[in-house]
Design a protein around this nucleic acid. Structure first.
Lengths: 188, 188
DNA sequence: AAAGGCATGTAAGGTGTTACATGATTGT
DNA sequence: ACAATCATGTAACACCTTACATGCCTTT
């Protein structure tokens, strides 16, 4: 029996903790003070999510300031947590992903370096640009439907531009990462 | 006491019903078969939302096929519903909106024609492009932060391109609507 | 007569939001 | 001494997803 996937916020927490052990408060502040704020930074979401991750054995909280009434917990990833993170990061991008879960996709990309090997990062970007192009092509015909009002058409155009733009970005990112890696190898 | 705002799905339903009376099933199909599918089209979301709107007096369901065990309800907007829709559509766009509620914004734009006067549509697009530029400028400095990994930087670049692109779209849309209106007036 | 689409709905479960509450520590 | 920030948490509520259930109608 495969345990059900976690919420996006839970993966964001795993990904941040993976880079460095952090307290709940530090995690919240990361959300509140950076462009990651889309992934939510209210205490009512973060603390319960951390509790749940700890109950599931994906993170482990070490209590500093023991004797205090208000202990401070710093969380580390466990090996099971690292595994869960990898299983979320690794799969190729589907059309469903780009149609309905764009934010989660960008979060995955932002958190995958140092966790996935270059080959899987390349696959992520390749399947991402393919899926974006495929989805864009599949909704383009709606532009011609006479049922569309001017506003609906303009809104759809905005969406299509976004899809095409992100596809181009994915291709550029793949190129850039490749050359960066080459330079890295030369230098070493 | 001002009643709390409705969920995005509820406004999507109001907006669609406003154009033409529709049944719950027809609304669901609209979501499932068009790019509006991002706004969700599962029966478990749509039917309870319609019930709630009817309880609140924003829509009224007329039952066809009375004597059947499975009646078919066709919903119409009430004047209170039209008012609620307008109150959701009318406000100027804020930075919070573009940072956290981009989808809702595009839905608002797609549904506002025929409901808001041109002046308010213009204001929507003007404040939208301003807010997009403002938000983009506010997160640009993060590109230079040394704490950003290559992946985080690339993800942020993608986000910034999206913001700039939508700002350009909003300006283009405003121009286009203006000229369309002029042509419309000339012809009449 | 069976299949598939029309058409409506409920139940369980998880997740998030808002608002509130508590206490410690640091700076002025 | 006071305010702000650090730091953690709970409770109420709303909402959505998934899965299931029901029955009608049309086509093959």
């Amino acid at each position: 029996m495969v345990s059900r996937p976690l919420a996006t916020l839970a993966y964001a927490l795993l990904g941040l903790i993976q880079r460095a052990p952090l307290s709940g408060y530090a995690l919240m502040k990361t959300f509140q003070t950076t462009p990651m704020r889309q992934y939510s930074g209210s205490p009512g979401a973060v603390y319960p999510a951390l509790r749940k991750l700890e109950r599931g054995g994906l993170i482990r909280g070490v209590v500093e300031r023991q004797r205090s009434l208000r202990p401070r917990r710093v969380y580390c990833l466990t090996s099971r947590g690292r595994e869960a993170l990898r299983r979320w990061l690794a799969p190729p991008v589907t059309v469903e992903d780009v149609a309905l879960r764009e934010r989660e996709l960008m979060l995955r990309f932002a958190l995958m370096d140092g966790v996935l090997p270059p080959s899987q990062i390349d696959r992520f970007l390749t399947t991402m640009s393919e899926s974006l192009d495929g989805y864009a092509t599949s909704i383009e015909p709606f532009l011609d439907a006479r049922s569309m009002s001017t506003h609906a058409r303009l809104a759809l155009e905005s969406g299509l531009e976004g899809l095409r733009g992100r596809a181009a970005w994915a291709r550029r990112a793949e190129q850039q990462l490749r050359t960066t890696r080459r330079r890295g190898r030369k230098r070493s």
